[in-house]
Amino acid sequence: MLSRHADAAFWIGRYVERAEATARMIDVHYHFGLESPVIGEALRWSSILAISGQEELYHKLNKSEDERSILQFFGFEERNSSSIASCIHLARENGRSIRDQISSEMWKCLNQMYLHFREWDVDQVLAGSPFAFFEKVKESSQLFQGVTNRTLMMGETRDFHDAGRFLERADQTARILDVKYHDLLPTFSEGTAADAAPRTTAEAGSIGGPVDVHGWIAVLKSVGAFEAFRKTYRQGVTPARVAQFLLLNPQFPASVRHSVGRIDGCLRRISGNRDHAPINDAERQVGRLYNELNYMRAEDIITGGLHEFLEDVEERCNQIGNAIHKSYLSY
């Protein structure tokens, strides 16, 4: 398969997933903010900026962190290549370049998504219910993923697409957790990292106040994990459980472990390598992370410091992306 085709499939996967993740993140925090007057507006938006890693660009384009500017920046800003509109546009352009490699239903879906969201702007979102807008983004992404599952041949194109999608998902989940964790429990990670005593951790933390629980529920909702979490943990919402669920749960489709496992499967199918030993850097990086997550306990993470762990995951997602590029796409 031509590297260019693989590259386009990979990025279609990433961009569509990224559009959905951005919509989820803003949606949840938006509503979280509306229901929780305790936390001021600035805090609400600054964590979103931190998750996206786009603070610099944002402040270059905007003076203040107000609702309208944030929605514009993440929803429609052309200069922000991660805005929902940019992601959809780029996914479509990649789709166009490999129209003959993907199914015509996939192309139709990307094209319709693009044409639909071209009609929206920030005023429209604010005038109506922002919820409807985010809902539409999520639905479009899910429709595309469904169509892809149903119509794209099992093969390299699909594996590259899925690798892109799950890499983006792992990264986004880690980011959301990281920033919200920081927001909600500023002392928690520092304390545990410092004294490294396992017993002070899991159920510890001064949680229980209404704001905190509310905050962690928002984290779960933003990755679509709230209900699944409830079914898994009847005891209640604690930071450690949320972290365990989102990082290590093997069944939840947006958990980092599940996502990395899927990338591993894609890469192994692409190379046809059945050996435990990797045959290139991409396989090595993914396999190493996947196995660490498989054998990791929540306590281990908390002991070492959740923030440090998440930063490491984000960095390694980045490295995996680079390694896939180097191994298959642009050598």
């Binding site: 260019r4 590259f160 692409i270 796409l329 050598y331």
Partner: peptide, 8 residues
């Protein structure tokens, strides 16, 4: 050469 996912 052409760039493919299996190398040049």
């Amino acid at each position: 050469f052409m760039k493919t996912t299996r190398g040049p």
